[in-house]
Design a protein around this nucleic acid. Structure first.
Lengths: 227, 227
DNA sequence: AAAATAGTGTCTGTTAGACATTATAAC
DNA sequence: GTTATAATGTCTAACAGACACTATTTT
C-alpha cells in the first residue's frame, strides 16, 4: 500500500472537536449537581437534536485542536473558557453518519455564575441526560469520570467555583464530586497543607449567621499539563 | 461559514496514529531502564530518520484509531501487543511538513523478552533519546509521564514483565518507575492487599541463592478503560 | 560455614476520620 | 438569650516507612 492510496483514503476522514463544558449547581440537593452545556443542532445530521458544542477543525484558522475547541466555545458562549483540557479522541466509521470520523474531545470547566448566560434548558444534569446526537452521551460520561478522578488528588475543581468562595462551598463541591460527604476538620487540614487557596483579606460572605471567610485559588497552581 | 467550505478545508487534514511502545530493561543499572521501540523511516518526510512506529489511519480497514494503532504494531512487530492505551492527540500546521496534521498517539507496553525480536539498535533509552522525526520526542515524554503516574496507583506495570515474575522483580520495576527505592516489607504488604498477583504454585526462579516464588498477574485485573 | 537473596515480624511516627468544642454572626 | 453556621481542637485507629530478623538456597 503506497502513500498515494493512503492519502486517497485519508481524505475521507472527518475531523472535528467536541467540548463537554461542565459546571456545578451547588443549590440542587438532589444528585451531585454536575451539569453539562448543550446546544441544539441547526443543521444535519441530527438536526434539532441536542448535542455537545463542537465543529470541524479549521486548518487555516486553528493552530491545533485545542484552539479549535476554544474557538467553538467562544462562538457558542461568547467568552473564553477558563479551563480546557484534552479528554480523549473518539473515532470510527459509524459514530457520524457522514462517514469515518475522528473527534478530539475536550473538557471545559466553568463556574455556575458565568454559566447563567447559557440557556437554562440547555444545561443538562449529567446523571439524567436527554437523548443526544452522535456518541455524545459517551463523551460526557468520560468527561465526568475524568473530573471526578481528578477531584481526588488535585485542585482542579476550583474552576467550577466563582473567583472567591468559602471553604464550606469548596468542601460541598469536593463532596459532590467524590460522592461522599467530607469531614469539615479533615478537609480544611488537607486544603491548608496543599496550599492552593489563600484568604481574601477582610472579605466575608454573610448569611443568616456567622459570615465565612472568602478564599481564592492561588495564582497558577499547577493543575495539569494541557496538550 | 457553511458546511461545504468546512468540508473543503477539512480534507487537507492528515490523520495518523503513532505508538510509543515501551519496555523496561531490568538489567541496566544506570537510568530507570525504560526503553522505547523506534523504526527507521523508509520514506519522506524524514526519510532515514528515527521515529515512532505509526502511519495513516485506513478508514476501509480500521474500525477506530486504536485498531489502526494495533495494525501498525502488528505490521512492525509481527505480533499483537498486550497492552494498548490512548495517550493524547497532537495536532497543528507544522508538526508534519506535509501539512496540517492530527496524530492520535497510543502507549503500548511489552515485556523485555518479547521485545528481544525488536532490533537492539532501535530500542532507545527514554532518558537519552536520539534525534527523532516530527514531534516524536514530545510524544515519548508524555508516554513516559503517563506510565510513571499510573505506576503509583495501578497494577499496569505488570505488562512490562514476562508472564511470570518474582516479587523482587516487580518491586525493582515499580522502584524504577517511581524513581525511588521501595521498602521490601511495605511493598509486599501493598501488593498482597491490592491482590492483583497470585502465586504460580510450585514454580520458583533459582539463582545463586534461595529461589524466589513466581507470581503471575491475576486474570483481568481492571487496569483502565481503553477508548 | 559463608554469602546472598527471599521472605516475615515488629516498632513507631504520621495521618485521616470521627466527633467535640468554641466563635461569631442574625434574630 | 436561641439558632445557625464558621472555625478549631482532640482523640484514636489505621497505615506506611524503617529496620531487624528468620529462611533457604549455592558455593
Amino acid at each position: 500500500m503506497n502513500m498515494k492510496s493512503d492519502l486517497a483514503m485519508h481524505s475521507k476522514i472527518i475531523v472535528t472537536v467536541d467540548v463537554a463544558l461542565l459546571t456545578v449547581d451547588l443549590e440542587s440537593s438532589l444528585s451531585n449537581g454536575l451539569r453539562v452545556g448543550l446546544i441544539r443542532r441547526d443543521a444535519a445530521p441530527y438536526k434539532e437534536a441536542l448535542a455537545l458544542p463542537g465543529g470541524y477543525v479549521h486548518p487555516e484558522e486553528d493552530d491545533n485542536t485545542a484552539a479549535a475547541a476554544r474557538r467553538v466555545l467562544k462562538t457558542k458562549a461568547g467568552k473564553d473558557v477558563r479551563y480546557l483540557e484534552q479528554l480523549a479522541t473518539f473515532s470510527g466509521p459509524s459514530r457520524d453518519p457522514r462517514g469515518w470520523s475522528v473527534s478530539v474531545c475536550y473538557v471545559a470547566l466553568e463556574d455556575r455564575e458565568t454559566m447563567k448566560q447559557w440557556p437554562a434548558d440547555l444545561l443538562a444534569r449529567v446523571d439524567a441526560l436527554p437523548p443526544l446526537a452522535f456518541d455524545h452521551a459517551t463523551l460526557i460520561g468520560a468527561a465526568v469520570e475524568r473530573i471526578r478522578n481528578k477531584a481526588a488528588y488535585s485542585a482542579l475543581p476550583v474552576f467550577l467555583l466563582p473567583d472567591t468562595f468559602t471553604l464550606s462551598e469548596l468542601q460541598d463541591l469536593y463532596g459532590r464530586l467524590l460522592g461522599t460527604p467530607l469531614d469539615k476538620s479533615s478537609f480544611r487540614r488537607k486544603v491548608r497543607e496543599l496550599g492552593f487557596v489563600e484568604e481574601v483579606s477582610g472579605a466575608f460572605k454573610g448569611g443568616q449567621n456567622r459570615p465565612a471567610q472568602l478564599y481564592r485559588a492561588k495564582e497558577m497552581t499547577i493543575f495539569d499539563r494541557t496538550i
